[in-house]
Design a protein around this nucleic acid. Structure first.
Lengths: 107, 107
DNA sequence: TGAACTCATGGTAATATTGCCATAGACGTA
DNA sequence: TACGTCTATGGCAATATTACCATGAGTTCA
């Protein structure tokens, strides 16, 4: 098992960083179901359109979503399908953590 | 399919944020194999001991690692085992992205 | 051409993250 | 008790992230 270079972890960190914002995760959850335009996502998130556009640029730059232009509209779609299962696993662990903590407090 | 509340995505973002640093990912990769003390991890990362300690606090607070005290030493160990598969999937997608981009450039 | 629409990009202020130094706390041992 | 070792925690400066406003770029249609 050879040691991975630091660049390897920087690449991973770039992906994690792109995931590290609730608005982006909300959009990804929606994009997992179907592609959506910036206007749809702006309404979904409820922030300024420019803010949403920048969030999408982050996701695109990280290689998590893909873009398709159609006239005036720009449609974003999911490119990484590892997320659903990942969050499911993470959340089951976090739920168990909470249970353990409750038990430790003698509830 | 009911809409998840914003708190749901904030919880996810907290985990992603904890993962969003190369040093922390390096430590997690090592911790996936065996528990390690702060001194081991400090040597692994090559940063100041206080820096490593703070990184570990971030991982612990996110519920990603667990702590065990033994005398003077503090051992950290992995608590979430979803990461290995997740990164494997992510990296395969990123590799494919690169291939597609190369092909698009007509290489 | 010009207005309306969709989206992206500077600019900027507020906030968060990060790393190191100094230092404090906790434990084992002489 | 005193000392050495291992960790954790303030403090602080440098850097990064974020949100909004204003505006620009590209497209459609009358």
């Amino acid at each position: 098992m050879k040691r991975k270079p630091i660049q390897h972890y920087e690449a991973r960190a770039a992906v994690a960083k792109a995931l590290a914002h609730p608005s982006r995760l909300l959009m990804l959850d929606a994009l997992a179901k179907k592609e959506m335009c910036v206007c749809d996502l702006t309404e979904l998130v409820g922030a300024d359109q420019s803010t949403v556009s920048k969030h999408l640029a982050v996701l695109k730059h990280a290689g998590i979503v893909d873009v398709r232009r159609d006239g005036v509209m720009t449609y974003y779609r999911m490119k990484i399908h590892c997320l659903e299962g990942f969050w499911k696993c993470v959340e089951s662990v976090l739920r168990q953590n909470l249970k353990d903590q409750s038990a430790a407090l003698g509830v």
